[in-house]
Measured scan of single mutants.
Amino acid sequence: LVRYRTISKIPQITLNFVDLKGDPFLASPTSDREIIAPKIKERTHNVTEKVTQVLSLGADVLPEYKLQAPRIHRWTILHYSPFKAVWDWLILLLVIYTAVFTPYSAAFLLKETEEGPPATECGYACQPLAVVDLIVDIMFIVDILINFRTTYVNANEEVVSHPGRIAVHYFKGWFLIDMVAAIPFDLLIFGSGSEELIGLLKTARLLRLVRVARKLDRYSEYGAAVLFLLMCTFALIAHWLACIWYAIGNMEQPHMDSRIGWLHNLGDQIGKPYNSSGLGGPSIKDKYVTALYFTFSSLTSVGFGNVSPNTNSEKIFSICVMLIGSLMYASIFGNVSAIIQRLYSGTARYHTQMLRVREFIRFHQIPNPLRQRLEEYFQHAWSYTNGIDMNAVLKGFPECLQADICLHLNRSLLQHCKPFRGATKGCLRALAMKFKTTHAPPGDTLVHAGDLLTALYFISRGSIEILRGDVVVAILGKNDIFGEPLNLYARPGKSNGDVRALTYCDLHKIHR
């Protein structure tokens, strides 16, 4: 019993810090008490220290592992850092350059016999395009090294910054494609005289377009951006097909006994025919423009016929181009109408809503002055909100995010209106959640004399007048207030005048 009563005193000691020596009952000389009392004092002292730490809000209350900052290894790049964003855009520009100039170089340097010394005699450094290609190869190699040090988000939505895990993730992902696209074939085969082989191998750079397509997928929600990307894709495919079309004609031209190829026909049409040795002929500019003209006309199913396939190889390629053109029509131009419709969806919704308003007016036989006010209010409210119901949009977000959005939407009023000066951010967040926005066209009466005042109004834009009878008592403008002081009276009061809008007004109100 003594032991039980001794232990039962522990909660009292913990909360009230009572010393055991003052209790005459606990001072009985028993061996059990002498053993338990020192333990009680020690526990009391420890609990006292913990309570003191909690009340003082000291940093040592938290466990040590929670006080440590997340460790980022040296030379690790955050995937959302500004440097990584700028670097990704730079790589994107280099990939676009590669997609345009690599097929052009591979096709127009394929057994090209233009006048001038061969590239091997001039030297590697004197070729501007080769120098640019070398810079692109170096940048792609540097990009691989950067990807080995860039964080990523795993399946659990955690940012991984450990170098080993980053390397394994990159090896399992895009490393092989990036490595093949970054191989400097110019340096590996330079001086061997195989410019045709170098041009063909350099087309491996186009593998990076797969990554670019995935990154550009984030802009699919913007109709104008999608339309622009589709047109660029169409032009890029036409450019690639033009390079292939020229390569076919250029390879067949020296081996044909009869002059029936499209390059021969082009030379005869523009007065620059090929001679018996295969030299001469149109310039590279004429060849490229004509090839691009043929691919565009074939892809769009126009086909004027002034550039036509004559050999079997050219006919087979033309059939493939027609098939590609039909697929592009289905996948690209078939979506253009939907994209344009999405661009004008706001206008369509406006006309639909206006039609419903006019049908309501016609069905209920609203008189002319009231009908005009109804239409003007709808037009003004639509121009202010673009038909978007803010309350319906915010309803799907958590309250903390709703408060931040409301604070942002009402920031101008909260910053410049005098009653809100000096208020804490928590108070402003709470008030912003209570605001209701209303609009009024010129001549609209917001409050009639004798109406119950259940709200306090803040003028965000425009001006109003307060009338008693036919006498203008006051004219209020931006950041002015009218209405009933909230919670100042037990019952809502009545208006002693009319409140009429002089201009288009936007008002925020808080109800009782």
Score class of each variant (00 low, 15 high):
R349G: 09
T437K: 11
E195S: 14
E115R: 15
Y293A: 01
L207R: 14
I361H: 01
K84Y: 04
V321C: 03
H448C: 07
D404I: 01
M179V: 11
L200F: 10
H162P: 01
F435K: 02
N310D: 03
L394S: 01
Q269S: 05
C122H: 01
M322C: 06
R74V: 05
P117G: 08
L145A: 08
H73A: 12
E359I: 01
A130I: 05
R421S: 08
I77E: 01
N410E: 02
T150C: 04
A338H: 15
D186K: 14
A392Q: 13
P82I: 10
C400K: 03
L94A: 13
I72T: 15
N250L: 11
F175E: 01
I183Y: 03
K202N: 02
L67E: 03
Y80I: 11
R356V: 06
T424G: 13
K66H: 05
V95H: 01
L446K: 01
C122M: 01
D88V: 01
E195R: 12
A225N: 05
F333H: 06
A69E: 12
R205W: 01
L428P: 01
T113R: 08
H239D: 01
F108W: 01
N312D: 01
L109C: 01
P70F: 10
Q365D: 10
Y170E: 01
L241N: 01
T102C: 01
F304Q: 03
L67R: 05
T102H: 14
G191C: 04
Y222E: 04
F83Q: 05
A155K: 14
D133K: 01
K425L: 09
A106E: 01
T438C: 12
I91V: 14
Q379W: 04
R165W: 09
L78Y: 06
E314D: 01
C406P: 01
Y104A: 01
F234V: 04
G278S: 04
Q341D: 09
A449E: 10
R371C: 12
L207M: 13
A225G: 13
S277L: 05
A238C: 03
E115T: 14
Q379H: 15
C400M: 09
L370F: 02
T437P: 12
V447P: 02
A338R: 04
K436M: 11
A182R: 01
G173D: 04
L409G: 02
D88N: 01
T203H: 03
L109R: 14
A291R: 01
A167C: 05
K395A: 12
I189R: 14
M328C: 13
Y377W: 04
N410A: 05
K418V: 09
L236C: 01
Q269F: 01
R362V: 03
Q68V: 09
T352K: 12
Y246W: 01
A167G: 04
G278W: 01
L323Y: 03
M251Y: 13
M231P: 01
K285L: 13
L110C: 15
